[in-house]
Design a protein around this nucleic acid. Structure first.
Ligand SMILES: [Mn+2]
Ligand SMILES: [Mn+2]
Ligand SMILES: [Zn+2]
Ligand SMILES: [Zn+2]
Lengths: 146, 146
DNA sequence: CAACAAATGAGATGCTTTTGCATTCTGCCA
DNA sequence: TGGCAGAATGCAAAAGCATCTCATTTGTTG
């Protein structure tokens, strides 16, 4: 079971044209197992430290960027501070973020997607990408707007 | 005519609880007259330099942030590099940006706005803000995707 | 016009991300 | 299996953007 997963990771890395190194395997495994799903480079660094793996922050940035180019990972620029990374599972979605506790939830709305295409067409633009993030307070009582 | 505009600017600044200083007047005037409409702090710095006004970059950042707090200006975090500022004319809109030439166009779509509210409600979130930016190639032949 | 508070400018500083380079590791072939 | 060329890593330095510190200047009010 675990052996299989590790091999999968190794394959993904190899398929991306990258050497299968310990940092890459560890980082990818962490992204796969991560509960939060959405982590910053520094989160990755600290989580790996907690797991006893000391990998340089520069390497983490480099690897995440390479994974992004390879389509294994998606990078988001939520407001405030660091970029956030998540495993790319092939299904596009947008985000709603709690500005109190940081919770991130995902959603996909075909209506919004369609409208964007129509708007782009009206303006004479092609659509290469888009970023939609809703910011608010989540349902946690401790987060409800004061 | 010009006198009136300048007074308007002065009033806006004063109403925001800020002293009417030369840097603030010049920055606000530039935003009002700016053709691009969407400028970075450094853009403001350089445009003012071109106009013979040498105002420190730190002051520009400070003033833009104050204007933002006062609701005179809106700040956007488009991908890559600096924050972009624009005069807040009171009407919310989102953006579509050309990833080749940087052109920025604005749009407002009630359907998208409504869907966001519904999504937030489903998730138990309140909506405090949102950012939607579409990235693509504009209609300029020189920008069309290769 | 004096007096005080607020604002500015210049440079230092902070934070995130990238880069250069010496060293180490992988993948591959003899 | 051993060895080698090229790729990857770690560390420290640098870069990019934004904010802060503090001495000096400016705006406001009486
Ligand atoms: Mn996500
Ligand atoms: Mn705009
Ligand atoms: Zn919350
Ligand atoms: Zn263009």
């Amino acid at each position: 079971m675990r052996g299989k997963k590790d091999m999968m990771s190794g394959d993904d890395i190899r398929n991306a044209g990258l050497k299968v190194t310990l940092p890459r395997v560890k980082i990818l495994a962490l992204l796969e197992q991560s509960e939060q799903g959405h982590v910053s480079a520094e989160d990755v660094y600290k989580l790996l430290l907690d797991a006893g793996e000391e990998i340089g922050l520069a390497t983490i940035y480099r690897v995440l960027t390479q994974f992004e180019s390879a389509g294994l990972v998606t990078r988001h620029h939520f407001e405030g501070g660091q970029s956030v990374f998540e495993l790319d599972r092939g299904e596009h979605h947008d985000h709603i973020v709690c500005i109190k506790c940081g919770r991130v939830e995902e959603f996909f709305d075909q209506t919004i997607e369609d409208r964007q295409q129509e708007i782009a067409k009206e303006k004479g633009f092609s659509v290469e990408a888009h970023a939609l993030t809703i910011y608010g307070y989540c349902k946690d009582p401790a987060c409800r707007a004061s």
